[in-house]
């Protein structure tokens, strides 16, 4: 990348005629591509190639062993009749709709608190960020399982307040919330972004508002929120897309990695995995993957469309 950026300067410095410069430019382009080639080859072989193949498989019946058989839109129509597929959509939607706002609210709340504190900010920032680094790991999911089991710490603490739930992990009604708690706990990453956004808000706006007699709530609502709305938008977008793809923690938290009990944490990717790798229905699994891509694209499009209504970019005001 650096090489490509610097090349115009080199071209300008040399007093060569235009044709030679063009040739040289082309040569430098070639060099640039050569430098990028490890990435390009990797992208073509490991990302683009498989994607094209999966698009083709999505319209076939393919069990890995016999060659794929063209079935048109069969896989897609079958999906809508498949009650487990419906269940996986329901579980994923629940997870996204409950988990993402909770995580972002917590992130914003803590960021607001941290933005005010003077001392030890670096320490707190690091401490709150840590879960985001380790949260996606298998070991943490295992710890989570232990925390939410019968008679473990969560169960006991709740019982102190007279709430009798028992173990969350084995209970189809509760295990999804155990998963939601795990994602909410990883609020550190969006928090750091919020914090950066909060630092960008000009002090003088608050001072002016204070002079005009605005209380803390009004200042938050009329200054902070509009000023950081691009950051909010960015976080919402990122976290939503991210939570659609949840797999690892659901796989580990459920006993035997079957995304149960009773398919209670059968998230979309989990079902995709079972169809593809346990049942060898690669055609169906590929079709599912493309449906997920479509759904995420649609949600992203809606978010982008909606930002006109609520995201405030400073340049607009000028």
């Amino acid at each position: 990348m650096t090489l490509v950026k610097e090349s115009p300067a080199v071209v300008k410095a040399s007093p060569a005629p235009p044709a030679a410069a063009r040739r040289r430019g082309r040569r430098e382009n070639l060099a640039g591509y050569l430098f990028m080639s490890p990435w390009i080859v990797g992208f073509l072989l490991l990302t683009a190639g498989p994607m094209v193949a999966s698009l083709y498989f999505a319209f076939t019946d393919y069990n890995l062993f016999s060659s794929p058989k063209w079935v048109g839109l069969d896989n897609f129509t079958r999906m809508f009749d498949d009650s487990r597929w419906q269940k996986s959509v329901e579980v994923t939607a629940k997870y996204v709709v409950i988990g993402t706002p909770l995580k972002l609210l917590l992130a914003l709340g803590v960021a607001l608190l941290l933005a005010q504190s003077r001392r030890g900010q670096a320490f707190y920032r690091a401490a709150f960020y840590a879960p985001s680094l380790i949260g996606a790991s298998v070991s943490i999911a295992l710890v989570w399982r232990a925390l939410f089991s019968d008679d473990a710490i969560v169960d006991r603490s709740l019982r102190l307040f007279g709430v009798e739930i028992g173990g969350w992990v084995g209970d189809p009604g509760w295990v999804l919330y155990c998963l939601v708690a795990l994602t909410v706990w990883q609020f550190g990453a969006p928090m750091v972004i919020f914090l950066a956004g909060l630092k960008q808000v000009p002090r003088e706006l608050y001072e002016a508002a204070e002079v005009d007699g605005a209380g803390p709530l009004r200042r938050f609502w009329y200054i902070t929120l509009p000023m950081i709305s691009p950051v909010v938008f960015f976080n919402v977008l990122l976290e939503t897309i991210h939570s659609f793809q949840i797999f690892g923690s659901a796989y580990v938290i459920s006993p035997n990695g079957n995304c149960g009990p009773a398919d209670a944490v059968l998230v979309y990717t989990c079902y995709l995995y079972q169809k593809g790798f346990d049942e060898a229905q690669m055609g169906f699994a590929s079709a599912m993957a493309w449906m997920l891509l479509l759904a995420v694209a649609l949600v992203t499009a809606v978010l982008f469309w909606s930002q006109k209504k609520w995201v405030h970019y400073e340049e607009d005001a000028r």
């Binding site: 399982r145 019968d150 173990g167 992990v169 084995g170 006993p255 009990p261």
Partner: peptide
């Protein structure tokens, strides 16, 4: 109780 059976697995 299946809930308990599930959560002590494996």
């Amino acid at each position: 109780d299946p809930k308990k059976v599930e959560q002590i697995k494996p």
